[in-house]
Amino acid sequence: MSQQLINAISLGAVYALIALGYTMVYGVLRLINFAHGEVFMVGSFIGLAALSVFHLPFALAVLVAMVGAALLGAVIERGAYRPLRSAPRLAALITAIGVSLLLQNLGMLILGAAPRAYPPAIDPAPIAWLEERAGVVVTRQQVVILAATAAILAGLSLIVSRTKIGKAMRAVSEDRQAAQLMGINVDRVIAFTFCLGSAIAGAGGVFYGVYYGTADPLMGLMPGIKAFVAAVLGGIGSVPGAMLGALLMGLVETGVSSVTLRVSPSLVLTGSTLRDAVAFAVLIAILLLRPAGLLGRPGREKV
C-alpha cells in the first residue's frame, strides 16, 4: 500500500509540473495551451541531448532544459498567440492545436518516430536501508525527482505570492483590463507566465525521461492531456488546485493499475490498460459534482 502511494506521488509530481503551466496560462489568458505537452517533450529532448551528448551533470541538464523550454514557450507565445490576443478565444484554441501538431511532426521529421533511450542519470537502484527497515522500495530516482519537484513548486509559490511580477500575474488573471489600467504591462506578464510554465514543464520532461527511460516525439500527448485533466480537476486557474489535481490523478492511475477485473473468460479487464479510461471517468464524475473543479471558484451567472 505504502509502495503504491510512493509510485503514485512520483507520477503525480510529474503531472503537477505539467499541469502548473496549463493552469497559469489559463489563469492569465483563458487559453487552453494545447502545445504545452509538446513543450514538455522538447524539454525532455533538450535534457536528453545535455545528458548524453554533452555529458552534463543531472542538475545542469535540468537547468538547460528549463531554459530551452522557456525560450520555446516565449517563441510560441510571441509568434502564435500574441497576434490573436484580440481575436475570439476559439481562434487561439485552434492555433494552439496547430502549434501542438506542428511541434509533434517537426519532432518526428527531425528525430524520427522511434523512442530514444534516456541515460539513467540517477542510480535507479532502490535505497537499501529503506527497503530493510520499512519494506518499501524507493529508488534514488524517486527521491531526487520528488525533492526537485518540491523545490520547483516551492520556488514557484514564492514567485507567485511574493514577487512583484507574481503579484502582476495574479492581477492579470483577476481582471486583465483593470490590471492594464493600473499600469501593468500585460503583454510582458503573459510572456513571463508562458516562460515560467514552459520552464517547469521542461524540468518535468527531463524527470519523466529519466524515470521511464525513453523519450519520443509523441511523448507529450498523453501526459499533456492527463496533466490538463489534472488542472481542470483541481479547478483550472488555481495553482494549488493543479498540484492537488495532479496528485489525485497519480493516485487514481496507480490505484487502478493494480486491479484486474475478470468479467468472463474472454473479457479480462486489466487495470493497467484501463487506467486512462478510469482517469477520465473520475474527471467527469468530479466535474458533475463540482463543475468548477475541486479548488476552482464557481463562476457566478450574470444576467
Binding site: A80, P83, T95, I97, G98, V99, S100, L101, L102, N105
Partner: peptide
C-alpha cells in the same frame, strides 16, 4: 498541414 492551419488562423 499544421503550419497551414496556424497561418490560416493568423
Amino acid at each position: 498541414y499544421s503550419a497551414l492551419l496556424i497561418a490560416a488562423m493568423l
